[in-house]
Simulated scan of single mutants.
Amino acid sequence: MVTAVDISPTTRRGRCRDVPIPPAAELTYQQGKGWHCYACGKRLTAGAVLVGRAEGRDGAHDLSAEVYACP
């Protein structure tokens, strides 16, 4: 499961891209396709930030996916 974003006392909100990337098996279909933010689950539109890859394997099958976060 994805961990919660720490809220900074100065900004009063955290940044989704600062949340550690979970394994690919813990992402929803939409998060794995890059349609939703991997950290908060919100639908992404313009300005989404590529954060990295969620790694995962099922035997010989590579389940890794590029994950995106809110701008």
Rank of each mutant, 00 (worst) to 15 (best):
R53L: 09
C70N: 07
V5W: 04
C40S: 01
E55R: 13
L50I: 02
L44T: 02
G47K: 06
P20E: 09
T28W: 06
G56C: 02
A25R: 14
C40M: 07
S8R: 00
V5Y: 07
Y38Q: 03
P20T: 04
A24T: 03
T10W: 13
A60M: 06
L27S: 07
C40F: 00
V5S: 15
G41Y: 02
A60N: 10
E66K: 06
S64F: 09
G47Y: 14
H61I: 12
S64Y: 09
T28D: 03
Q31W: 14
C70S: 04
D58F: 07
G32D: 10
L63M: 12
L63T: 14
R12P: 01
R12L: 15
V51Y: 11
P20S: 03
A65Q: 13
A24L: 04
Q30R: 14
P22F: 03
A60T: 14
I21M: 01
V51S: 01
L27W: 12
V67W: 08
I7T: 14
P22N: 09
T10Q: 15
V51C: 08
K42C: 06
V5E: 14
A46G: 06
C70W: 10
M1L: 05
A54D: 01
R17L: 04
V5F: 10
K33M: 11
A65V: 12
G52W: 04
I7N: 07
G32I: 12
A60R: 12
T11H: 11
Y29R: 15
D18H: 08
V2Q: 13
E55I: 03
E55G: 01
Y29A: 14
E55H: 11
R15F: 11
V49P: 03
T45S: 14
V49C: 04
C37Q: 03
C37T: 00
I21N: 07
D6H: 14
K42H: 12
H36G: 02
